[in-house]
């Protein structure tokens, strides 16, 4: 069955991705050899198939942003190592696609991000992702620096969501 026709071809999406992350232009060198798929841990345990994702991107098929597939990559960089081509950086492409997906409002399910609430909170109040690190967290004025760097980042929204939740809990208790 023909998956795409010539009229489906859309370079704008590809250009957008390359505009954002120049390294993405290297995926055009992909010869579809499948080495990355054969060695990919995500492929072994799910329907994730990086070659399919690359094909969609090269076709300009933006539905890839809605696919849950892009959230299954382990960012292990194995593909980058085994790929016979010089500079194809799949984990970076995946991060970029996830970013676009976020921007368009498809993003991951809330449940997935919920796992990050605690870590985000620790980072923005302690400077580490664990409570009570080996030699204590960062001094408070240094925490300010991290908060300033992370201004407008999603980590802040995740953090705020956690604060609201704690408030709600407190309300319920009282």
């Amino acid at each position: 069955m023909v998956e795409y026709t010539d009229s489906d071809w859309n370079w704008d999406f590809y250009k957008e991705l390359v505009d954002d992350v120049e390294e993405n232009k290297n995926i055009i060198q992909c010869i579809s050899c499948g080495k990355c798929v054969g060695d990919c841990p995500a492929t072994k345990v799910s329907n994730f198939n990086i070659r399919k994702i690359i094909r969609k991107v090269l076709r300009g098929d933006m539905s890839v942003l809605k696919d849950s597939d892009i959230w299954y990559c382990y960012l292990c960089e194995r593909c980058k190592r085994v790929c016979p081509k010089d500079n194809i950086n799949i984990p970076l492409l995946i991060i970029n696609l996830r970013n676009e997906s976020f921007k368009k409002g498809y993003g991951p399910r809330y449940n997935d991000l919920r796992k990050y609430v605690e870590m985000s909170e620790k980072f923005l109040t302690n400077g580490t992702v664990l409570e009570d690190p080996l030699e204590g967290g960062l001094p408070p004025e240094r925490i300010e620096e991290l908060n300033e760097i992370c201004n407008f980042a999603r980590i802040k929204y995740v953090f705020k969501a956690s604060k609201n939740k704690t408030k709600e809990k407190k309300k319920k208790k009282s």
Partner: peptide
């Protein structure tokens, strides 16, 4: 040990919770 060193923030970058520039800024810090 460097008292003012923070977590590397890799885990947040990998889940798109901070941008590349923010990640690099944390690293440069």
């Amino acid at each position: 040990m460097c008292v003012n060193q923070s977590c590397c923030s890799g885990t947040f970058f990998q889940r798109n919770l901070i941008t590349r520039a923010q990640f690099s800024a944390i690293n440069e810090r």
